[in-house]
């Protein structure tokens, strides 16, 4: 009897309490969502929505004049069986990424080590070495590069001093891609800065201990510097690789994909299909293959990372 009364009395209070609690929770939810809503809206409208549209379009023929018509896997089959320019663009892009990314990272690391020393003037040097990376993506640099490596450009007049007569590097089929690779390596500034920050994190005691043991500089580099830098190398590798696969501006402006498609980057061929030939379906299918390739490479690097990236917090592995 008594208990019944008590429970009758306490129930409404409990209920109102929990409803206040619920209200508070709902308000908290709303406040949180309100802050991220700009991104959420953009994510739905400009990322998820287009991605779904892109999957659909990749199975259609669409020229933007008539409505898309369904062709099944035809775009994908055509790509790998009868589009030799597609295969060329894949080869060119793979070669470009596989050569330019490691060279760029090696350069960045060597220069970062050079600047790690506590010497006078390092601040100014770092600034000068970083300048190319600030302006690297601009049209101005592409224009400049084309002339620099042209038949009468500064590169050839430099070679003439050594008694070598150069060719037009940009329009020569065997060297065109290399002018673009050199351009990308020239912009090693960002990975250099990231390596410099990473080098500062390595505790000096490690080097001191190694010196006591009589380790030589080469051994110090391979046994201390390199292992301690692996997380940074990992990050730079992933970012540069993704950037490499997406390269567009340089080949569009400097070589236009030529000569003989030797610099036909994947992104350039995709652009040509979409905005020159207006084959939006085919371009969408190409975009999905690019996504798969990038995802595959990223996954390989991530999976392999457990065997070569050193994380201190995990006791070495």
């Amino acid at each position: 009897m008594n208990q019944k009364v008590l429970s009758k009395v306490s129930n409404p209070i409990n209920r109102s309490r929990s409803s206040i609690h619920l209200k508070k929770k709902a308000v908290r939810e709303l406040i949180g969502i309100s802050f991220i809503s700009p991104w959420l809206l953009g994510f739905l409208c400009f990322t998820i929505g287009p991605m779904i549209a892109s999957i659909y379009l990749s199975f259609t023929n669409y020229d933007m004049l008539s409505s898309p018509n369904w062709v099944g896997f035809k775009n994908y089959v055509h790509m790998f069986t009868s589009d030799s320019r597609f295969v060329t663009s894949l080869e060119v892009t793979f070669l470009f990424v596989i050569v330019s990314v490691p060279l760029k990272l090696i350069f960045a690391l060597l220069i970062a080590m050079l600047f790690n020393a506590n010497r006078r003037g390092v601040g100014i040097y770092r600034t000068i070495y970083y300048i190319p990376s600030i302006i690297g993506g601009s049209v101005a640099v592409s224009v400049m590069w084309k002339q620099l490596f042209g038949l009468h450009g500064a590169v050839n007049s430099g070679l003439a001093l050594l008694g070598i007569s150069g060719v037009d590097w940009v329009t020569n089929p065997s060297s065109a891609l290399w002018t673009l690779i050199v351009l990308v390596i020239w912009q090693f500034g960002s990975p250099m800065l990231i390596f410099m920050a990473g080098l500062k994190q390595i505790p000096n005691e490690l080097y001191e201990a190694a010196a006591v043991d009589g380790a030589r500089p080469i051994a110090k580099f391979f046994k201390i510097t390199l292992p301690m830098l692996t997380p940074v190398i990992f990050f730079n590798l992933v970012m540069q690789m993704i950037g490499g696969f997406m390269s567009f501006t340089q080949s569009f402006l400097i070589t236009g994909g030529g000569p003989l498609d030797r610099t036909l980057f994947y992104a350039l061929y995709l652009y040509q299909n979409a905005f020159t030939n207006f084959q939006m379906g085919y371009a969408s299918a190409m975009a999905w293959i690019l996504l798969l390739i990038v995802a595959l490479f990223t996954a390989i690097i991530f999976k392999s990372s457990s065997s070569w990236v050193y994380y201190e917090s995990e006791g070495g592995r």
Partner: peptide
């Protein structure tokens, strides 16, 4: 952050 912009390029243009 890692998504290649090419994937959304075409549908965004159409939009």
């Amino acid at each position: 952050m890692m998504l290649p912009s090419q994937v959304t390029l075409v549908p965004q243009y159409i939009l």
